[in-house]
Write a protein that binds this DNA or RNA. Structure first.
Lengths: 165, 165
DNA sequence: ACGTATTACGTAACTGGTTACGTTAATTTT
DNA sequence: AAAATTAACGTAACCAGTTACGTAATACGT
């Protein structure tokens, strides 16, 4: 078994370790979906759930809800539209807005998908126990309260010249 | 304050939340380095530490140590070479191997860099307290023991046809 | 010692996200 | 009601990583 240096690199390694965990989970989710021979990507799950709840949402609403940039949503929506899982209409009140919603096909396939998600959830629940969910919440709270960058700036009373050049 | 849907989306949201935390930390680290007007990227930190310890390492060794693919390391090394932080020589015993090491310039700048890292460490330590590090270890252990994908396969005794189509 | 398998590195193409920028529509200011 | 500002979407270029693939050097089995 190879030596894992990240663990020995102290604090410097934490962020890398979190990233590795995150990437690993993403990678595995992808594999699970692939093994199902479903033409579905992990991210889509969230979009399905969101639109099932809200019926119609604009691009920016989805982006904000999921914490992505709006171009990211546009790309995902494009893909999902190609596979006819989503459709959109222009808002009659505000023609800038695109209202995204699930198609008939989506609604038909939802029960099957939800069954799969239920199975995936069970597996995830074996990893994400109480403690770990607590950890997530704690981390989120800390970072939400004050970003790392801001903490750094305040800590050392440095002038933020990252944008000046 | 906008509603955070990820929190309401149950298990489906965990992986997305971890990713968000991870991305956020990365983003902020980048900002800290930018504010220092140092031409250094966060990832490089680990390479510096590693090579300071080990003196000379091959591309694949670095990749394994840090959990990246080898092409990723090649790219990073290329950049660092351009700025003259790294240099490489071909192994005399095995001419396939490139031995990467720190340059004089790196060694000269190290004290200053280490001073900065020390400051960054202090800030990170305000986030990564005992509890969080414990849980991080726990998560890593769980995932190291058995990947999510494997858990899934075993759980449902599915044949892995993710590579077969 | 010779053919085969493996290892190490490098490049190319792709991926899932980002920021930057442009356009048009709506809103606010004056 | 005209001008300026802001909001929503779309596209383009970029970024940091990945996988897939090629090639050359080494190690291995017979």
């Amino acid at each position: 078994m190879k030596k894992d240096y990240l663990q020995t690199l102290e604090t410097a390694g934490y962020t890398a370790r979190i990233k590795r965990i995150s990437d690993g989970i993403m990678y595995d989710s992808r594999k699970v979906y692939a093994s199902l021979n479903l033409n579905i990507e992990p991210n889509w799950h969230l979009i399905f759930l969101l639109l099932k709840q809200e019926k119609k949402m604009t691009v920016t609403q989805i982006a904000e809800a999921l914490g992505f940039s709006h171009p990211a949503i546009i790309k995902i929506v494009k893909k999902m539209k190609l596979l006819e899982y989503l459709e959109s209409e222009t808002d009659t009140k505000d023609s800038r807005k695109q209202l995204i919603k699930l198609t008939k096909k989506s609604l038909l396939e939802l029960p099957k998908l939800e069954e799969e998600w239920e199975k995936i959830k069970k597996v995830l629940d074996t990893i994400f126990d109480e403690d770990i969910i607590m950890l997530l919440k704690k981390l989120e709270e800390k970072l939400a309260h004050k970003s790392l960058f801001q903490t750094y700036i305040d800590y050392y009373k440095i002038e933020d010249n990252s944008n000046t050049f």
